[in-house]
Deep mutational scan, measured.
Amino acid sequence: DETGKFLVLSLYDYQEKSPREVTMKKGDILTLLNSTNKDWWKVEVNGRQGFVPAAYVKFL
Rank of each mutant, 00 (worst) to 15 (best):
P53E: 03
F6Q: 14
Q15L: 12
V43S: 00
V8T: 03
E44G: 05
V52S: 01
S18N: 13
S10T: 08
N34S: 13
G4W: 10
G47D: 07
R48H: 08
G47C: 06
L11C: 10
Q49W: 07
V8S: 02
T3G: 13
D28A: 07
L7E: 07
Y12H: 14
G4K: 14
D1N: 14
S18V: 04
D39V: 13
E16M: 12
E21K: 05
D39A: 10
K38E: 10
Q49P: 06
L7Y: 14
A54C: 07
S18M: 07
S18C: 10
E44Y: 05
N34P: 03
E44H: 05
E2I: 14
K58S: 14
L32G: 02
K17V: 08
E2S: 14
E2D: 14
K42Q: 12
G50K: 01
E44I: 07
K17P: 04
N46I: 03
F51E: 03
Y12Q: 14
S35N: 13
L60F: 12
Y12P: 01
G27H: 04
P19Q: 10
D13N: 08
L32A: 02
L9P: 00
G50R: 01
V22C: 08
V45P: 00
T23Y: 05
K17S: 11
E16R: 11
V22S: 01
T3C: 15
T31D: 04
P53I: 04
K5S: 10
L11V: 09
F51T: 01
K25W: 08
R20V: 12
S35F: 11
P53L: 05
A55E: 11
F6A: 12
A55T: 12
V8N: 01
I29D: 00
T3M: 13
V57E: 00
L30K: 00
G4S: 13
V43Y: 00
L9N: 02
K17C: 11
S18E: 09
D39T: 12
L30I: 08
I29Q: 05
K17E: 08
E2W: 08
D28F: 04
Y56S: 11
L60N: 05
G27P: 00
I29H: 05
K5L: 12
Y12E: 11
L60D: 06
F59L: 15
N46H: 11
Q15S: 10
V52K: 01
Y56G: 07
D13E: 06
L7I: 09
V22E: 01
F51H: 05
Y12N: 10
K58M: 15
V45N: 10
S18P: 03
S35T: 11
Y14G: 01
N37Y: 08
S18I: 04
L9I: 15
K26G: 05
Q15M: 13
T31W: 12
G47I: 02
F6W: 14
F59Q: 10
D13Q: 03
G4I: 13
L60C: 13
E2M: 14
Q49G: 06
T31E: 09
R48G: 04
T36C: 15
L9H: 05
S35P: 08
K58T: 15
D1E: 14
K38N: 11
K38Q: 10
P19F: 10
K5H: 13
K17T: 12
G27I: 01
L30D: 01
K26T: 06
K5A: 12
T31Y: 12
I29G: 00
T3V: 12
L33P: 00
F6L: 14
D28Y: 04
F51W: 13
Y56A: 11
N46D: 12
T23N: 06
E21C: 08
S10F: 06
F6V: 15
D13T: 05
F59A: 11
T36I: 09
K58Y: 10
A55C: 14
R20Y: 14
T36R: 10
W41S: 02
K25T: 09
N37I: 06
S35G: 10
Q15E: 15
K17F: 04
N37W: 06
R20E: 12
G27E: 03
T36N: 12
N37D: 15
Y56L: 13
N34W: 07
T3S: 13
L7F: 14
M24P: 00
K38F: 06
K5N: 12
W40G: 00
V45T: 11
Y56I: 07
E44W: 06
P19S: 11
G47A: 05
S18G: 13
D1K: 06
W40K: 01
F6M: 14
E16I: 05
F59H: 10
D13R: 02
L7S: 07
I29R: 05
W41F: 09
N34K: 06
K38V: 10
L30R: 00
L11W: 04
N34R: 05
E2G: 14
K5P: 14
A54N: 02
L30C: 13
A55V: 11
N46F: 07
K58I: 15
N34C: 13
L30H: 02
D28K: 04
K5Y: 12
G50F: 04
R20T: 13
F51A: 01
K5E: 10
T23M: 03
T3I: 13
N46L: 07
L32E: 00
K17I: 07
G50Y: 03
G50E: 01
